[in-house]
């Protein structure tokens, strides 16, 4: 059962990613990207990361996809389509070489895996890890400053002169 879910999600995710890259209509590519975000949330669920799946849907499907679609609509370039540039063949070669290297490494390496069953509801455990003793409190604060700076920078960049 678990294997079937993984294979279906993996095949649909790869097809959606190929559609984002290969479709000529920019808006349809953006919709395929939203679908890809949803299937990646499903992959997180198969990995027992329930909190991360919900965060994926909130942040990516809810926020980033809206930002990207607004960007497509404000730049009236969608009628030109998403064509490939001069670097298409070198990009294909680089991508295939990297893919071969990564797959070869993933298959031949002896990964040390643990047999301990994973935590089931991860939300409380992630909260303790983030804010508890010896946790990630400083990175959380730095991330808040980073997002504030990014929002202010976006407003300054996009404002009419």
């Amino acid at each position: 059962m678990f294997d079937i879910v993984f294979w279906v999600l993996a095949v649909v995710t790869v097809i959606a990613a190929l559609a984002v890259v290969l479709l000529r209509d920019v808006f349809r590519a953006a919709l395929c990207l939203v679908f890809l975000f949803l299937t990646v949330a499903g992959v997180y669920i198969t990995l027992h990361a329930d909190f991360l799946a919900v965060v994926q849907i909130l942040v990516y499907v809810g926020a980033i996809s809206v930002v990207i679609i607004v960007g497509i609509m404000l730049t009236r370039e969608m009628w030109h389509g998403s064509s490939s540039g001069k670097l298409r063949i070198p990009a294909l070669v680089v991508g295939l070489l990297l893919l071969g290297t990564l797959v070869f490494t993933a298959i031949t390496t002896q990964w040390y895996t643990s047999d301990v069953p994973p935590l089931e509801p991860t939300t409380a455990a992630i909260g303790v890890r983030l804010f508890g003793e010896g946790g990630f409190l400083l990175p959380v604060e730095v991330t808040a400053v980073l997002i504030l700076a990014a929002v202010l920078g976006a407003i300054v960049l996009i404002r009419e002169k």
């Binding site: 370039e77 064509s83 295939l96 993933a106």
Partner: peptide, 25 residues
């Protein structure tokens, strides 16, 4: 392997596409 395939599809798109919004996607 799933993540490697996704990463390489994204890398191909970043290197080959001309529309800057598609590169961001």
């Amino acid at each position: 392997i799933l993540s490697a395939v996704l990463f390489c599809i994204g890398l191909y798109g970043v290197l080959s596409k001309r529309n800057a919004v598609v590169i961001l996607m």
